[in-house]
């Protein structure tokens, strides 16, 4: 092999090796039935969220007056609610909103939590002490209570739900990241980086961050599933997203009064919530297993 060929191989090598690592990760994930189910459910719901507006047979708030309170049938797969809205369409259309709100909220919490966790763990001292004590006091309150408190002050809207997710989950992510940083920062390679005068940002992002990533990705998946549950719960309590939005929690709340007459209007949105939360949890478990096995190699 000539040198020229060798270098092309190498430049390709990095690209293919990422692709191969991803494939290897996927293959290992699908090797266990539970995590395969989890991954499939999660992918399916993301697909529904994206394609929902195109495949839903009716609009979210389209009232078919003649067909109110219909049981599931070939025209209305999940039946209709007491106002005559198609439950199947509403579940499909609701997926986008709930995944987007929960996803965006989790993303913000993960970014802020990671930065604060990295800094608190690495710098220590007063900075760490102040941040962690504030987070402790936030964590002392049950998540839902904290959410109700916040919504009472910032008002009820989609943006407030985002803020709630952000405030509730940032401390949790920060604590997890900080614990990994504490274990890594006394290792020789971090001290070696300090000894060649690397900046704090470089040490945090290039030296420490790779060790945090496996734990962080599992934690993010878990937070995402809890965030979905939180959005649905707030909808159910009537303090989050407001009607007539097709929020799954809100749908359960609205149909609750007529539970004995139109049980399908409760069962289907409730099932959607549980299935997606269980699916993402299974996926997170699988990711943890695969990442630990890879780490041990």
């Amino acid at each position: 092999m000539t040198t020229g060929q060798r270098s092309t191989d190498l430049s390709l090598g990095t690209a293919t090796s990422w692709w191969r690592r991803l494939l290897l990760f996927a293959r290992r994930l699908f090797s266990s039935p539970t995590s395969a189910i989890g991954a499939t459910i999660t992918l399916l719901f993301i697909l529904v969220a994206i394609l929902g507006p195109f495949i839903a047979p009716y609009g979210a708030n389209e009232i078919i007056a003649s067909d109110a309170r219909q049981p599931p049938s070939s025209t209305h797969w999940f039946g209709t609610d007491n106002l005559g809205r198609d439950v199947f369409s509403r579940v499909l259309l609701g997926a986008g909103e709930i995944l987007l709100l929960a996803g965006l909220g989790t993303l913000l919490a993960v970014i802020a939590g990671t930065l604060l966790g990295l800094l608190a763990g690495y710098r220590g001292g007063i900075f760490d002490e102040v941040i962690m004590r504030v987070f402790d006091s936030l964590l002392a309150l049950p998540a839902l209570l904290l959410a109700l408190l916040l919504l009472g002050t910032v008002g009820r809207s989609q943006n407030s739900v985002l803020i709630v997710i952000f405030v509730v989950y940032t401390p949790i992510v920060a604590r997890v990241v900080r614990s990994v940083v504490l274990a890594v920062k006394s290792q020789g390679f971090v001290e070696a980086a300090r000894l060649i005068g690397e900046s704090q940002a470089y040490i945090l992002l290039r030296e420490i961050m790779p060790s945090v990533l496996p734990t962080l990705s599992v934690e993010s998946a878990l937070r995402f599933s809890y965030a979905i549950f939180l959005v649905a719960s707030l909808g159910f309590l009537g303090v989050g997203v407001q009607p007539p939005s097709p929020n799954w929690g809100l749908m359960v709340k609205e149909a609750r009064t007529y539970a004995s007459q139109i049980p399908w209007a409760i069962i289907f949105p409730a099932a959607a919530i549980s299935i997606v939360v269980i699916g993402i949890n299974l996926l997170a478990d699988g990711m943890k297993r695969v990442l630990q096995a890879t780490g041990n190699e």
Binding site: G188, F189, E191, A193, I196, G197, E207, P210, S211
Partner: peptide, 29 residues
């Protein structure tokens, strides 16, 4: 002023290749 640590396993970043670890002091110092 440079240092060699006692535990060789912890002295190199497990997520960076040997070449990357060696290149860094050259680029910076």
């Amino acid at each position: 002023l440079q240092m060699v640590f006692q535990n060789p396993e912890g002295a190199l970043n497990p997520y960076l290749t040997v070449g990357e670890s060696l290149r860094r002091p050259l680029l910076r110092l």
